[in-house]
Structures are given as C-alpha cells and as structure tokens.
Nucleic acid binder design. Sequence first.
RNA 1: GGCGACGUGGCCAAGUGGUAAGGCAAGGGUCUGCAAAACCCUGAUCACGGGUUCAAAUCCCGUCGUCGCCUCCA
Length: 458
Amino acid sequence: MTDLRLFDTYTRSVRAFKPLEDNQVRLYACGLTVYDYAHIGNLRTYIFEDLLRRTLEFNGYTVNHVMNITDVGHLVSDADTGEDKMEKSAQKMGKTAWEIAEYYTQAFIQDFARLNIKMPTVLCRATDHIQEQIDFIRCIEKNGYTYATSDGIYFDTSRLSDYGYLARLDVEGLQAGSRIELGEKKHPTDFALWKFSPKDQQRQMEWDSPWGKGFPGWHIECSAMSVKYLGSFFDIHCGGEDHIPVHHTNEIAQTEACYATHLANFWMHGYFLQLDEAKMAKSAGGFIRLQTLIDKGYDPLAYRFFTMNALYRAKLNFTWEGLDAAAKSFDRLRLMAYRWGAPGSVDEGFVDQFREQINDDLNFPRALAVTWELTRSALPDSTKKATLLVFDQVLGLGLADWQPPEQVIPDEILALAESRTKMRQEKRWAEADALRDQIIAAGYEIEDTPQGPRIKSR
RNA sequence: GGCGACGUGGCCAAGUGGUAAGGCAAGGGUCUGCAAAACCCUGAUCACGGGUUCAAAUCCCGUCGUCGCCUCCA
C-alpha cells in the first residue's frame, strides 16, 4: 500500500497527502465562465480534477467536491476597460445574460456526463452568492485592505508582504515591465473587489451593495463560496495553470486579508492543452468543443483516454493524429475487456502496481502502462476483467457496461457474405475473394472466426 | 520588455544520476486457402556545444528552437 503523494504549487514540491480532518477531503475546483461552450482544453482540466477525485476515493477518502460556475460577466481587465463577456454574448444571441448563463451551464453539465466526470457534490453559482461576496468584501475592508476609486472598490496588494507567493511573482519586475494601464489603481497587481455599474447605462446583472450599485469582482466569488462550503482552510484547491499568477494569487490575498490563511493545504493545477503548439483560446479561434469531436465520430471517452496518456502537470499537444491513436487503442482495450466476459477474482498484485502509479502524483500514463501489462498477462480472462474493472473505478472509462455498438448490416451485404461462405466451402477461392472485395468496397470488413464470418462497418 | 516552462524513436508520451514505460504507426513472424482479427518479435543514446561525476536523457553553463504567463481565460 503506497501513500498518496501530490504536487503542491504553493510549496513547489510533491508532498504526502493526508486530509486535514478524518477521512474527509474538502476539494474546491474553479469552474467555467458560462458565456460560451467549454472547449476541449477547458475539459482537460476537469478530467484531471475528476481523476484526482477518483484517486482520492480509491484511497478510501470521502470527497466533498465543490465547483463554482462563474455566471457574472466581468470586464476584460481589472481596470475600467473592455466589454463584459456575458452581456456581449447575450447581445449577440438576442437573449438575456441570465438565459445565456443557464444555457451554457447546462451544456457544461452535459459535457461532464459525456466524459464520465463525476458531478461535483456542490455546484454553486456566483449570482446565488452575492450576499456572501459582499460580506467577504466587508471583512477585507474592515481589516484595512481596500480603497475606492471612481469605478470600484479595490484590493491593496501592497498591504500583504507575501503577495504573489503562490506564483513566485516578482512584483518589482511586474511594475518595471508592466504592459497594463494603471488607471486609478495604486499598484499594477491591485484588483477589483466590487465594480460600480456605469452611470449612463443599466446592466442586466447588477446588485445593491454598501458601496453602491454594481457587481462583484471575479476573484471574490471563489473565496466567498469556498469559505462558505469548505471553511477558511481546506484540503485542495485546483484549477488551470493560468490561474496561478492572477486568480488564485488574488484568492489567497483575499483570504489572508480576512482569515489569515492561504485557503488550501494543497494547490493543484492542470496544464494546458495546446492546439498545434499554440494555445487553445476562446478568443483566438482554434476552438474545439466536445461536440466537434462527437460530430467527427469520436466517442467522448476517447478524448478522456487521450488526456490520460499524458501527465496532468505537463502541457499536452492536441492533434487529430494523436486523438486517432488514443481512440484506436481505447477501442482495442474495451473490445478486449468485453470479450473477457464475466469478472472473476481480482489480482491484488496488479491493483498494487496500479495504485502505486496513480498515487505517485497521478501518473496515469504509467497506470495505463500497467493496464496494458495486465492485458498481456497470462491471467485468466475473468481475473483480467475483474482487475480491470477495479482500475476503471479510477479511469472512469465505463468499461463495465460497454458493449460493441449494434450494427445493422444491410441485407445485400449479408447476402454477399453468405454467397462467399458457400464459395469458400466449395473452395472456389477466386470467387470468394471477389465477393469479399465487394463487401470491402461497400464499406464493410469481414473477419472469419470459428463461429463464422463477422461483419462490421469500417 | 519582464518572468517561466519545454525540446525523448515516424507521431503522442513516461522516465530527472546507474546504460531509455506504454500507446498509435511501420517492418518481420505465427495463424489463415489468401486475408482480416489476434498473438509474438524488431527499432530511439534522449535539440546542439561545453562542463561536473566512476557514471547524465536526468546536475551546471552556453547556443538554437518551441510554447506559456505578464490582459478575461482551464
């Protein structure tokens, strides 16, 4: 039995993981901003978090998994510039910001189901927690970390001596090489806690607050909701690598200002999926969603499998060739498992090897190598099946229920196959092969088995 | 301009001091009337140049290349 070890961005080291309390793991994951569909890069991070959760559960822990949905629009920068993404998307679609948020939230939940990602225990929307956010800001204000400008209430990052520790930010360097306009902010790293609604226009999403009508800054929702559901210091906080320098850094700043903790015992980050060596961004074209893959005939779980062939802590390059390779090997694996039949007894030796790999900071590439070793082993099929199903509690590939899709083979193809069988029985090989060529030309392939020919579409 | 990461066989990707997991593709073989499927086998000295060490893909320095962050972003 190997202990679970996880990489913690805060300390930049792999550390032994133990829950802060009993066998309960309190896990917070940053969710999606629902102004558009999730792309497969976003989804890579949620698959990583699902694998983390399942690994924790495999180790016997109960996981309280909280994820936020960012359904408040935010400006493109903390300064008073740019457009609001929610409101812009609403305008484009001819719907309200609220309808947009709901629509994309549902789409997001559907993607989770299709990827076999377990639903978080709590899925919380920022707009359902405005009061909690206001209370949190008041706490920060009371402790003297805020200042007001003409457009909002800001966090004064210079008040924290270790601001930016998570990202190892070089605050001086940021000031020197700064590309951002300061506006009324005192320091480049200061950020908005509450933004005022523009005086000349009515926002669709705005609320009253002690400071005036407006809406919360982006970072405060995660601090307020994680504290509400998990307490001011919990086990693991995760998100995408892009959150390290800004979002998570600011969440920590807010929590330090109010509760004097750095919020989570472990900070974990999923690394980017890249598209042909370039970033996949909603704003920069190159936007592939799960539905795009499905439309091209891929099983969503093949994408899940694809991401598991790389470490969560390394960038992964997406190519169609790479996805094909994953889809093909995944199909082989589950067809093999299907043909193994009913599960028998579990081989604990293989389970130990598997556990050793996933407990080593979620080394799924290695865990899959163990899986392939299992398939090649001399164990009885029923043992392989039972053992693989244990692995699948973590892999989440739906191997227990999967069966080959029912294929309707057209009568004319069946007729051709039948004639071919007859020809073969009469050893009229040339004619039999001609019939096979016809079947292949029609888009089917034929395998001769002891039980007779097996036909499937290609 | 500042900060950081990465560069492993045809492709994807593990391994971070003791002579390179795994998957896909390719080649060879077994099986087959021939195929297909399945199974077996084969292949990389780790971007380049120096250095440290008995020993380096793995540590240090330099060069080249790619990418990310610094602005909402998984």
